[in-house]
Amino acid sequence: MDPIIEIRGLRKTFRRTVAVEGLDLDVPEGAITAFLGPNGAGKTTTIKCVLNILAPDSGTIRVLGCDSRCLGPAQFCRIGYVSENQELPLWMTVDGFLAYCRAMYPSWDAGFEAKLRLQFDLPGCTKLGALSRGMRMKAALLSSLAYRPGLVVLDEPFTGLDPLVRDEFIRGLLELTEDEGWSVFISSHDIDEVERLADRVAILDRGRLRLAETTEALQARFRRVEVVLDESAPLPPGLPSTWLNPEMAVRTLRFVDSAYRDPDALTAALAAHVPGARQHHAAPMPLREIFVALARSYKLDGLHGNGGCGGTH
């Protein structure tokens, strides 16, 4: 299946600051792809390049089969974009705003709009400028979903949403993805929520893509490992680079195995690299912990000038 967003060799700089460097990424159709990364990693820049808000310095981006620089009304009718920093006509009332947007989309679904309005509980006569940040985000979401776009690009969409709405929104998005085959490209710091949503995860760090793979595969190859040694000892040298953030606490060695395959392989690796390992325990990790482990690892890499330890798949 062709990717709905195809990024090749993307580079974007702001004067001397490199925001994105050599980014290659595919967003598959019909899936929810989470775009994760610490602050300043280049997520929003990438999304803006995808939507032709920013012009890339080099590289190509194809969205819905079209070069991002040539995106036009026909493509934007199929793209729903919501960003936490998106400009809205704040002087409009919610009703006026929706009426204004409604005229732009031939495929606007009034029933779906009504359903979302009910769900979001938006006051029709209030000006957007008078709404809270969360309510404003709901209005933006509504205006970007009511025409049933095939591709939804969300940049920090959960900002300001209350848990109930967030939950309903995620469920709705999952349903739509499943029922109508929507593709979602979502950037967020809220990894717990993303974990429930995302089929695929891409992690960006300092403008470079560190990994991009399915959530399932990611979680399958990451384990938090605790090894109890016979006696207290310093951190053994020569540990594999796929063991992230190794720490010694008296007789316990803790690390994150980023290339976990099965218990036997782990046992063999421990035997080879950690002499005196009496017993060990490998626990699956939620996406948040994986992300934190990777982020810490990248940070240390950055300090030590090493390359990444997570592979891109």
């Binding site: 808000i53 920013l54 012009a55 793209i79 732009m104």
Partner: peptide, 12 residues
């Protein structure tokens, strides 16, 4: 302005 409200809306 390439990042205005209409930048990602289908208005020719």
């Amino acid at each position: 302005r390439s990042d205005g409200f209409l930048a990602t809306r289908p208005v020719p």
